[in-house]
Simulated scan of single mutants.
Amino acid sequence: MGIFSSSALFNIQEFYEVTLLNSQKSCEQKIEEANQVAKKWEKTSLLASCHDNLQKSAEVHY
Protein backbone atom coordinates (compact mmCIF):
# COMPACT_ATOMS: atom_id res chain seq x y z
CA MET A 1 0.00 0.00 0.00
CA GLY A 2 1.19 3.52 -0.68
CA ILE A 3 1.41 6.43 1.70
CA PHE A 4 -2.37 6.81 1.86
CA SER A 5 -5.04 4.15 2.16
CA SER A 6 -8.01 4.33 -0.20
CA SER A 7 -10.09 5.46 2.80
CA ALA A 8 -7.71 8.35 3.48
CA LEU A 9 -7.75 9.37 -0.18
CA PHE A 10 -11.54 9.34 -0.13
CA ASN A 11 -11.53 11.56 2.98
CA ILE A 12 -9.14 14.00 1.32
CA GLN A 13 -11.25 14.10 -1.86
CA GLU A 14 -14.43 14.61 0.15
CA PHE A 15 -12.85 17.43 2.19
CA TYR A 16 -11.64 19.10 -1.01
CA GLU A 17 -15.04 18.94 -2.68
CA VAL A 18 -17.22 19.73 0.34
CA THR A 19 -15.07 22.43 1.92
CA LEU A 20 -12.47 23.92 -0.37
CA LEU A 21 -14.57 24.06 -3.53
CA ASN A 22 -17.61 25.43 -1.70
CA SER A 23 -18.00 29.02 -2.91
CA GLN A 24 -20.57 29.71 -0.17
CA LYS A 25 -17.98 29.26 2.59
CA SER A 26 -15.74 32.14 3.57
CA CYS A 27 -11.96 31.82 3.58
CA GLU A 28 -12.09 31.90 7.38
CA GLN A 29 -14.53 28.98 7.46
CA LYS A 30 -12.34 27.00 5.06
CA ILE A 31 -9.24 27.68 7.16
CA GLU A 32 -11.03 26.64 10.36
CA GLU A 33 -12.31 23.43 8.78
CA ALA A 34 -8.87 22.70 7.30
CA ASN A 35 -7.30 23.12 10.75
CA GLN A 36 -9.88 20.78 12.29
CA VAL A 37 -9.22 18.13 9.64
CA ALA A 38 -5.44 18.51 10.05
CA LYS A 39 -5.73 18.00 13.81
CA LYS A 40 -7.87 14.90 13.27
CA TRP A 41 -5.39 13.47 10.75
CA GLU A 42 -2.45 14.29 13.02
CA LYS A 43 -4.12 12.51 15.94
CA THR A 44 -4.93 9.50 13.76
CA SER A 45 -1.36 9.42 12.44
CA LEU A 46 0.11 9.63 15.94
CA LEU A 47 -2.14 6.85 17.22
CA ALA A 48 -1.21 4.62 14.28
CA SER A 49 2.48 5.33 14.88
CA CYS A 50 2.18 4.46 18.58
CA HIS A 51 0.29 1.28 17.72
CA ASP A 52 3.02 0.26 15.23
CA ASN A 53 5.74 0.93 17.81
CA LEU A 54 3.91 -1.15 20.42
CA GLN A 55 3.54 -4.02 17.98
CA LYS A 56 7.23 -3.91 17.07
CA SER A 57 8.18 -3.79 20.73
CA ALA A 58 5.97 -6.79 21.50
CA GLU A 59 7.51 -8.77 18.61
CA VAL A 60 11.02 -8.14 19.95
CA HIS A 61 10.09 -9.52 23.36
CA TYR A 62 8.75 -12.82 22.01
Rank of each mutant, 00 (worst) to 15 (best):
M1L: 15
M1H: 15
M1S: 15
G2L: 11
I3F: 09
F4S: 05
S5V: 13
S6L: 11
S7M: 09
S7I: 10
S7R: 10
A8W: 00
A8P: 01
L9K: 11
L9T: 05
F10V: 08
N11F: 03
N11T: 08
I12F: 14
I12K: 12
Q13L: 13
Q13H: 13
E14T: 03
F15V: 00
Y16W: 06
Y16H: 05
E17S: 08
E17H: 03
V18A: 08
N22S: 09
N22D: 10
S23M: 06
S23W: 02
Q24V: 00
Q24A: 01
K25G: 06
S26H: 04
S26M: 06
E28H: 03
Q29G: 04
K30P: 00
K30E: 00
I31A: 00
I31P: 00
I31S: 02
E33S: 03
A34L: 04
A34P: 02
N35G: 13
Q36Y: 06
A38N: 06
K40W: 02
K40S: 05
K40Q: 08
K40A: 06
K40D: 03
W41I: 09
E42G: 09
E42I: 09
T44V: 08
T44R: 07
S45M: 08
S45T: 11
L46A: 03
L46Y: 04
L46H: 04
L47Y: 08
A48Q: 12
S49W: 02
D52R: 07
D52G: 08
D52K: 05
N53S: 14
K56M: 12
S57H: 12
S57L: 14
A58S: 08
E59A: 15
E59G: 12
V60M: 10
V60G: 09
Y62H: 13
